[in-house]
Amino acid sequence: MIEIIKISKSFNSQKVLDDLDLNIDPGKITVIIGQSGGGKSVLLKHIIGLIRPDSGQIIIDGIDITNLNDKKLNEVRKKFGMLFQDAALFDSMTVGENVAFPLNEHKRLSRKEINKIVDDKLNLVGLENVTHKMPSELSGGMRKRAGLARAIALDPKIVLFDEPTTGLDPIMRESIDKLIVATQERTKATFVVISHDIESTFTIAHKVAMLYQGKIVAVGTPDEIRSSNNSFVRRFIKDLRD
């Protein structure tokens, strides 16, 4: 369970998050949508402790991570996997080494066991024969798949996605959406996705949260959001579609 309680964050006197509250349900896909530059990535980085809030609390499984020291924060982070916008694969390593990286760092496993997990995770995200390739040899969609394989290598309870479909063509976007849904169904982990892609959001989300001017302005299932008569929500969806 992730509870975000009244967090605020400003950069150079510009308020990006403003007393924001949000509860994220375990074992579901929650999509946080909002306009580009609206603070979605900042919110996601707060959840994993990459940015500390000016005020407020972020509770992960009962632990407030906002004031933890590095050592304790690192322990909490082991519950997480994260897929970055451009996958953030390590350039100097092969795809296989990238997926094996968290396993080598945190598990005492033999090389054979690690290789098996790497193959399993790459198969799970639909990648074959790429173990020895460098990230620069992969297409954008393949890099995201490899990034997801690395994010789920340690079987985390929570997986964060930073704009997973940005920069992809419509076919690849649909394919990544299906992959997110299928992976969540198999892992039963909590997925938190941030996006400005309204079509993708309605396809994959169990729950949608709308971020606007530093606050969550609406929360509900995709159907609730889609059929909402609230003029603000309708205008928001229209703005994102445009």
Binding site: I48, L50, G81, F84, A88, F90, H106
Partner: peptide
């Protein structure tokens, strides 16, 4: 390059 492509953030997220 690692900083601007979020690879350093990725290291942090992997503890």
């Amino acid at each position: 390059t690692m900083k601007v492509t979020e690879q350093i953030d990725a290291l942090n997220t992997m503890s």
